[in-house]
Amino acid sequence: QDIKPRLIRFGYGLNEQSNQGRAAKVFADEVAKASGGKMKIRAIGAAALGPDNQMQQALIGGAQEMMVGSTATLVGISKEMAIWDTPFLFSNTKEADAVLDGPVGQKVMDKLQEKGLVGLVYWENGFRNLTNTKRPVTKLEDLDGIKLRVMPNDVYLESFKILGANAVPLAFSELFTALETKTVDGQENPYNTILSSKFYEVQKYLSVTNHVYSPWIVTVSKKYWDGLSKDEQKVLLDAAKKSRDFERQDTRAEAAKALADLKSKGMQINELTPAETARMRDKLTKINASIASNVGMDLWKETQAAVAQARGGK
């Protein structure tokens, strides 16, 4: 086997104790095992190497070797990544896994290569859900007039505006204070984030909207990747796949536990009926059209077909 001693810096945003940190450790262990200890992953969490966009630029420039981060922050680098921002694209994790690990997911990932990044696998951040202080959101009309913090991103802003909320962009660092002082009424994030950021202290209602599925993506600097031997590349890819399987299982178990915790912390939790979800989805055709034109009609159609296949094949 053609494997040299290597030190690989792998950056991520959450802390060591998070699902991201645990999966990074699994990845590091797998790489060490498969390379006979020659390739060392130095996993550095808590955004110590900077926020996602900073790490991405470092990877492209070859100043850092690997990272895992949100696909949404890659949209500025590779516009096809915007496909994963589509609201209500997946209705469950089974569909998400099938599409992300299938040819469509690979195609989107491969587009990164032109920009100096190599995508290996998708991890799961999770379905985003909505919390607020005003009322349980059980139907479309309940969103009316809720001042909702969304990620500073046109798709999310427009989507929630169309659904009737007053969508407000705000930095995540200011979010807790803004919720506490009621500068905004609500926000939307996966369960794990709602729990770890203590939003339950300042939010009453949690509505299980599953309105968008957020993946994370493991990437390598292309400059670095091209200097690796085939064997070394295989070590990284195989370990990434193992870390992916572990991460998804771990994240899902944690999300279930987080939901239970949020309930025990006193949040009032309600689900959305499939009929209401469909009403929301139908309202967003304009958004879908603009995403389709951004990522290209071919990719959009392939994605829809892949989702339909996953949905039919259950």
């Binding site: 966009n53 991405q56 630029q57 492209i60 420039g61 949404a72 922050t73 949209v75 500025g76 680098i77 920009k115 100096g116 500073p152 991103n153 046109d154 962009p169």
Partner: peptide, 17 residues
């Protein structure tokens, strides 16, 4: 970093990073 960033755009305004 200027060279690297000319190929990416910002999220909202779309200016070259």
């Amino acid at each position: 970093q200027v060279v690297v960033g000319m190929d990416s755009t910002s999220v909202v305004l779309g200016y070259p990073v």
